[in-house]
Nucleic acid binder design. Sequence first.
DNA 1: AAAGCGGTACTTTTT
DNA 2: GTACCGCTTT
Length: 762
Amino acid sequence: MTDFLADLNEPQQKAVKAVDGAVLVIAGAGSGKTRVLTYRIAHLLNLGIDPFNILALTFTNKAAKEMKDRIAQLVGGSKAKSLWMGTFHSVFAKILRFEAEKIEYPSNFTIYDADDSKRLLKNIIKEQNLDDKIYNAGAVLSRISNAKNNLISAPEYNEDFEIQTYDAQSRKPKLGMIYSIYQQRLKKAAAMDFDDLLFNTNILLRDHADVLYKYQNKFKYILVDEYQDTNFSQYLIVKKLAANNENICVVGDDAQSIYAFRGANIQNILNFKSDYPEHKIFKLEQNYRSTKNIVNAANSVIANNKDQIKKVVWTDNESGEKIQLFKASSESEEAALIGSRIFELKKNNEFSDKDFAILYRTNYQSRALEEALRKLNIPYKIYGGVSFYQRKEIKDLLAYFRLVLNPSDETSFLRIINFPARGIGNTTLDRLVVAANENNSSIWEVAQKPAAFNVQLNSGIINRLNEFVLMIKSFKARANNHNAFEFGKMVAYQSGIIKFYNEDESPESVTRRENIEELISALKDFSEAPGDVEGENALRTIDVFLEEISLLTDSEPEKTDRDDVNRVSLMTMHAAKGLEFPVVFLAGMEENLFPSHMSLQSRTELEEERRLFYVALTRGMKKVFLSYAETRFRFGEFNFCEHSRFIDEIDEQFINVISGNINKPKDNSWLKESFSESRKQFKPINKISSAPSATQEDSDAGFVLLTAAQLRIDMVVQHQRFGIGKIKTIEGAGENAKASVVFNNFGQKQLLLKYAKLKILS
DNA sequence: AAAGCGGTACTTTTT
DNA sequence: GTACCGCTTT
């Protein structure tokens, strides 16, 4: 075998060779972090350590897959395959299935994604007759998620004085009750949400010393990537598993911590030193990825953060070009500018499509960019957003699979009982749900013999229910003796889904049909793929397929088309973490968009945004372009934007303004041009022209987001689009605070204070 | 019970 | 601007 260690610089080598004990690797952006991790694992294997004894935890599925591939190249595929490598969620889901009975779950439990969880919460909120505006399912889920990630169970949540006081003050006193019911229902449905996978792993390791001992011995060497993004729940799992051997290596960069909003805790990195007093620290500070200009620009930005571990990221690479900034009048012009720049850079064959990435803060920004790229015939691929497996038609078909494997799964049952329509409506379902809850049984049981649960239904409905039950049972009989492809195809036809989408030729139906076809072809690929470790004749069944995709929230089914490879990448800055591209465009560098308006209230949140900017900048290898638009459609409204404060934080010697001048007084002449275009999407501008208030110079000055507390009834305020008006009522608090305003020219409007910028006039 | 209409809320980031 | 919800009509 070749001495691959020679590929590494000194600190990298040291980090790889320090095999025993606790090791903390602080790895600056582009410093070869993945390389250290992969080489370290390869090194362990070369020392003769059994791959089954190595646990490597990553943050995304993509990272796990890439690392596995790279290790396979170094030490061969069979060893790489036997490694325990994956995301926290996928690794511990596997372990939980194996140990399920210890925590009183069946081993075929269903994993609910955020969408499933929200559906269940919505149902609960409705059943409890709570106002779904106060108890917004998404917000409730994030509160519950937060509790779980800090290992606060539902009973503990309800007993905690501080939490209860907080909820009461934010006018959501029933959150604890919802949390309790939610957990009961998940349990009854034999389902776990994403956070339960980690929470229940903690319970398993806490309450079963023998299990803990077993895995401590199994995982003699533990590696954790992106340690700065672990939450408390993950931290504790790792700590427990490592407690016996203390062969643990964590790799991270506090400057790239961008998931605090989801419970990640930078403290975990800082705690490492006290948790393992005998630890060794290695700092990787040489950047191999980017030009001097990019590295220095990023350093000048991150220097504005107060909370950080000191390190100096530097590079030996060429100076390169300055970062280029351009200004556009609208998001479509911004997109067109980016597109034409890509076009130019491709012309002299220095770059091809795959070398470009366009990164943005929010998913909805992708639309304008897509349009521009399509117009220029530039092939692109969007990562993230509404992923393939989140699409309605796909989730519908998957719900059939899930219900067949786990008939207790309430959310899947409700999703498909009447899709395609089979004459079982809400009245019937409400009765079934009530009976199920009263008798503490699943809807599936009630549906099989409604009379036994005192549910009165007419004979027509009973027949239709019965047909549905028989259909699912007939599917069930075929789930284990057919491969996933044969099974899935059969379900797609017999459930009526294919027929449903064949019935009309609307573009929407056609797309959905194509997606179903794509899922079936993914099933085919899956069924024909060689089985894992077992015998070659082992049938690749639907349950294995479901397990494989239930934690894939980010990807499309694998495609092998050659033209799929050379494309411009579009994704959020979050999704770009860990990736690199020769040319990077950061679009939408505007206040309130980036940094997000949600993060302007606190320093810690603003610093997280700044770290995100740091991550985004350091994705670039050769060239980085920043752009912003002076106007943007948001929430169906036309908004004026200011350039992001982050632009000003880049030391000016590293940045170059291409078009326009960000400090020059606002030039609104482009507005007039837009009027004459009279394009549909610019209609709101015409409205502005008729509103006397908005045509004045600097019309975007002074409009700010206000809270309910700052407003009074009868106050006169100005809105960018609706002009001057008087406040009539103010209701709600916090997120949902609304004001009803009577405008002189537009009548009465309900404004959500979260979004509507106002200027107080008197 | 299903389909079609109109009103409302919504957009931070993801396993 | 869209997705979803609830209401109305058939």
